[in-house]
Write a protein that binds this DNA or RNA. Structure first.
Lengths: 158, 158
DNA sequence: AGTGATATGTTATATTATTACATCTATGGA
DNA sequence: TCCATAGATGTAATAATATAACATATCACT
């Protein structure tokens, strides 16, 4: 689970990334789906930083290794990774981040710094509870929640 | 303020819309900005239903009245209307809805029915409080919140 | 090895949004 | 009233994001 320390610029990102990738293998195994080499590589590329990445940015990177890659190559990998819960789309940016807590069931909000572009997924269960209650009072049946906060992170706010 | 009754298919939409348009005039006057005829017409088109509308859908409608209209015509109007708070973008749909409570300061969540495509903006102040508290604990300075729930509305869930 | 399901390759195109620059219009001050 | 100018609109081109359709390849199981 992401905690307050991981939002610090100082956190050990190598560990952070390694953990995400190991979790990915585990999650795919459990679900009986295939983390093929393309999919794995796209996930790695996303996870190299906490910055949200656009599909075409990923394509540019991936093309360095496979010049014949096309947009659909990336979108297919992203669709898979999102289905499995290894990647999330940030709707307000049309961009993607790696999920650092893919093993656990999670109810998260995404905090996006408009200065450094880092995006952090933070547990927000109580916010979900709140929204579920509100849904109930409207007799609305929620299926997918999007909670995104744009602003300035602790490293960029001053 | 939108309340539980306005999510019913039965609500009187003519009133609903008229109210939104009158509020728009007021809001623009107060802010000293110009609700020109293009802008007003685009707002009217958005407000004719509670369904989220894409920019190109609006363009098609608007072209019936002004065949020379271009995408940028619509996007400029939408940008203005969003700045003033008369329209909101639904990020998860790349679509727009009219704001029915533009006079009041508001902290809302958007409930989107994936069946009938209606989208309702509902007061969610307590959710905002919750997220502000969470932000504080992360020393994150929030500037814009996006809260969207996709699911099934009371009219479509059975 | 054969079969069916899943994944990938390839081409084309759809959808959403912005840039750049020209022209027009509203508004306030001389 | 006329001018200056800021804001609004016109017009063309293009950027950025995403999907469709169909062919081929690969995996996993028998």
């Amino acid at each position: 689970m992401l905690d307050k320390t991981s939002i610090q610029s100082s956190h050990n990102h190598k560990n952070c990334m390694q953990h995400a990738l190991q979790a990915a293998e585990k999650v795919c195994k459990n679900k009986g789906v295939r983390l093929t080499s393309i999919r794995k590589r796209i996930l790695e590329l996303i996870c190299t930083s906490h910055k949200a990445m656009g599909a075409y940015g990923l394509l540019d990177l991936y093309k360095q290794e496979d010049p014949k890659a096309k947009p659909v190559t990336i979108y297919r990998a992203l669709d898979f990774l999102m289905d499995v819960g290894l990647v999330h789309k940030i709707e307000s940016l049309n961009a993607f981040i790696g999920c650092l807590q893919s093993e656990k069931q999670h109810q998260t909000a995404i905090f996006i710094c408009d200065n450094c572009k880092n995006a952090y997924e933070i547990d927000a269960s109580s916010v979900y509870e709140n929204l579920f209650t509100l849904s109930q009072s409207l007799q609305f049946k929620p299926q997918k929640l999007t909670i995104e906060l744009r602003g300035l992170c602790v490293n960029c706010r001053y």
